[in-house]
Design a protein around this nucleic acid. Structure first.
Lengths: 193, 193
DNA sequence: AAATTGTTGTGACAAATATCACATGACTAT
DNA sequence: ATAGTCATGTGATATTTGTCACAACAATTT
């Protein structure tokens, strides 16, 4: 049942067949067409989502109507708005499918109930969050460097996803405009000087 | 024993006297003079640190010798390099005391042993990490905005710490130079136009 | 195929921020 | 008190990145 997720769990902890089954039984599969939303701003984020197939982007729309992409989610990634989830306050983010996408969702309260009876499950989520945290810690550092280095870093980590993303979205993720990214890509090729 | 930490724990979970005692017995208090290090680059980060008194900054020194502050730690904060901790690889960060500082440190292996016998303890660390994660998620967004908004956001969250920090460190945390921060502070006062 | 829509490239110019140089002021340690 | 160090303010200028306008191209729909 849900081999992608089961493997992901097995990568970090060992859980009984039994407990794994209990956990999987609480998951709900959700399918999205391109451009549909997993989360819309103003909504409280009550679920954590595991992407099985496809991809999503998480972004804020600022006061000037510009979209700021802060994160992507592809196969094997958990994604949600942790602040809204923690505080039950309306999210400022949208999480939108970039392509036909399937995710497994679990509700916060359900998950926390499970943690009590299956501590190994909390171990798993804790480890996953630690990895995510380490990633974000790295991103803070990268965002303090010039755009060209940010792009190089992005390609190192996510180069394999580049053909599934539009340049606009990559640019926004890097914190620059699409025009700047376009120039960066073309000038980096022939530094002509 | 360690009232600041005990209160912090009680804020999120309820733990037996007994278990709390077991946990506290594994902690070691470390005192630092100003400028001493909790972690130096090249070292593996094997501990998590809880600041009891004083403050520290976490920063990287880039190839041009410039310091990039990515995080602070003051009373009531856990701090470490999560990437180095997770992967047992040498850290690229330094964590340095900004003033006379006292922290409680716990070793990774010890902590993970305790998680097995005291699942509530893992609950606590998991929750603390979720809050930290939510914070960092927010920081990514802020780092995509103009410097003046980043500074405003910083003052909202950490205004009460501003007199304990040098402007250089604040500037670096915001991802700008000390000169730019200085101008920002002075121009924001009288927008003269 | 034509029309529509969305994405990307590029030029001219503007704005934000960095760099460098130096002055001032604050703090520390003799 | 006197150096000596360190943090901060400020001007002149350079660099990076954004903004706006428009063209080229691709994908999608009719």
């Amino acid at each position: 049942m849900y081999p992608l997720l089961s493997n992901h769990i097995a990568r970090y902890v060992s859980v009984d067949e039994q407990d794994l089954h209990t956990f999987c039984a609480t998951l709900k599969s959700v399918k999205l067409r391109k451009y549909q939303y997993l989360l819309q701003e103003g909504t409280i984020c009550r679920h954590d989502y595991f992407v099985i197939k496809g991809g999503v982007r998480q972004y804020e729309v600022d006061d000037k109507g510009r979209e700021k992409v802060i994160h992507f989610g592809f196969e094997d990634w958990w994604i949600n708005d942790r602040y809204s989830w923690l505080t039950s306050s309306p999210s400022i983010y949208n999480i939108q499918a970039l392509e036909p996408t399937e995710v497994l969702q679990i509700e916060k309260d359900t998950l926390e109930q499970l943690f009590i009876t299956i501590p190994r499950l909390e171990r798993y989520f804790h480890i996953v969050l630690q990895h995510a945290f380490a990633n974000w810690q790295g991103r803070i550092l990268v965002l303090q460097k010039p755009a060209i280095e940010r792009y190089a870093h992005f390609r190192n980590l996510y180069g394999h996803l580049e053909n599934r993303l539009s340049q606009q979205h990559v640019a926004s993720y890097l914190g620059i405009t699409r025009e700047s990214l376009s120039r960066l890509r073309n000038h980096a090729a022939q530094p002509e000087k």
